[in-house]
């Protein structure tokens, strides 16, 4: 609408501000907690703003001395990056061809529906069989084992998302490419995948986040620093006799950084994909 009344404009801006506050307030509080001293955090009434900025917890978590909380945290950070990256990459390797095949053969759609149907099962139902399988193959408390479990969650999701992404790419383009003499790999590499790049980037972000934030299976299938992931490590911080809420908040801030980095990286791919011009040949 070109002409909006003043009241309507104020209403829109107020609502936008409200949404922004709702989204940003927990993040802001997380950061404030991570730099407040324990005294400030446990004071009554609560000190919303710390007297002094306390960055000691960051140095604690980044410290590398043996058997320190920092070493455990850093190894779990490494495990999380390893597990989430492996699972995401493997899911894309499986999901890109599978999504394309499902998009081009609609009669196969029911198989995808069936796989998505397994999502209806609660993770608890699958935990025992998965545990037994991992134990059988000696993959308990192992980053590869956990990545494999995540792959089984991510692959259907990524395939389904990518199928929806391939659907609007006209089949004529593939026909034209094959008449023009392209082999299957050339057709995918030069024509189809560049057009699907935005949705591939989206799938990558969501798959990475899903793997990064997963807690339940990680808790069940890992037991020490060899494979324990960040979500479990943060839970451990709260599990002791004394819970340092500031420390948990600090770990939360650090845990949020890698996904943000992936998001920023992918945003470029998203934007470049979108500016490449419409799909309408």
């Amino acid at each position: 609408m070109e002409h909006q009344s003043l009241i309507f404009r104020i209403f829109i801006h107020t609502m936008a501000l409200l949404v922004a506050v709702v989204i940003l307030a927990p993040l802001a509080w997380l950061f404030i907690m991570s730099v407040s001293s324990s005294v400030d955090l446990s004071a009554k009434p609560l000190h919303w703003w710390p007297e002094t900025l306390d960055f000691s917890r960051y140095s604690l978590l980044f410290s590398q001395s043996d058997n320190s909380a920092g070493a455990a945290f850093m190894s779990s950070l490494g495990n999380s990056i390893k597990v989430a990256s492996m699972a995401t990459i493997a899911a894309l390797v499986v999901g890109v061809p599978a999504g394309w095949a499902a998009s081009r053969n609609p009669q196969l759609g029911w198989t995808l529906g069936g796989v998505i149907g397994t999502y209806m099962l609660p993770p608890v139902a699958l935990s025992v069989p998965l545990y037994l399988i991992l134990a059988k193959f000696g993959l308990l408390n192992n980053v590869f084992g956990l990545a494999l479990v995540y792959l089984s969650i991510l692959a259907p999701f990524v395939t389904w998302l990518l199928k929806a992404g391939f659907d609007p790419i006209p089949r004529d383009l593939e026909d034209a490419a094959s008449i023009d003499g392209a082999r299957l790999d050339q057709m995918l590499r030069i024509v189809i995948l560049p057009l699907a790049l935005p949705v591939i980037a989206t799938a990558l972000i969501f798959a990475f986040l899903l793997a990064w934030d997963e807690f339940f299976y990680a808790l069940l299938f890992t037991s020490n620093q060899n494979a324990k992931t960040l979500t479990v490590a943060i839970a451990d911080l709260a599990g002791g006799r004394v819970s340092d809420y500031g420390l948990i908040a600090t770990a939360g801030v650090i845990a949020a950084l890698p996904p943000v980095a992936v998001g920023i990286l992918m945003q470029r791919a998203l934007i470049s994909g979108l500016t490449n011009g419409g799909v309408k040949g």
Partner: peptide, 21 residues
């Protein structure tokens, strides 16, 4: 014989140009 080996060219109703090239 696969389309690529037929020595035939085709113009489509939708033009089917590769939008990214």
């Amino acid at each position: 014989v696969h389309p690529k080996d037929r020595d035939i060219a085709m113009v489509f109703q939708s033009y089917a140009l590769y939008p990214n090239l």
